[in-house]
């Protein structure tokens, strides 16, 4: 299972980096999304993949019993997903707004237009 996850993670990183290197800003953002999901998978694998009971703490105790699944990596991923979602929404609006003023989402064209302004 770990091998599979490692392969999937690697493939997704490659896809993400490939998209990031495109000039099209929308593709860049999709690249960031793919990359971030690959890293979520990485964290998931890093939390050890075991078959175990759910991480519930019995009443009156501060620590869970032995033999439970690791809840921490899932909490980390959930936090990262929520943060990533907010950032994604922001970047999409930013690019949309840029598209409206420049009429293009090509990074080079936008840079040239900006240099032309000065």
């Amino acid at each position: 299972m770990e091998t599979l996850i490692a392969l999937v993670t690697g493939t997704m990183v490659a896809v993400g980096v490939y998209l990031l290197l495109q000039r099209d800003l929308v593709r860049k953002i999709i690249g960031v999304v793919v990359l971030s999901n690959s890293i979520h998978l990485l964290i998931f694998a890093m939390g050890r993949m075991t078959r175990a009971s759910s991480p519930l703490i019995p009443p009156g105790q501060k620590y869970p019993p032995e033999g439970i699944a690791n809840p921490l990596s899932q909490a980390l991923i959930l936090t990262a997903i929520v943060i990533g979602f907010g950032l994604l929404a922001f970047s999409l609006v930013l690019i949309y707004r840029l598209y409206q003023s420049r009429g293009t989402v090509d990074a080079d064209a936008i840079i040239e237009a900006t240099l032309g302004d000065e």
Partner: peptide, 9 residues
């Protein structure tokens, strides 16, 4: 104000 209508050519 957020999305001023700009003619996109």
């Amino acid at each position: 104000r957020l999305f001023p209508d700009v003619s996109l050519g």
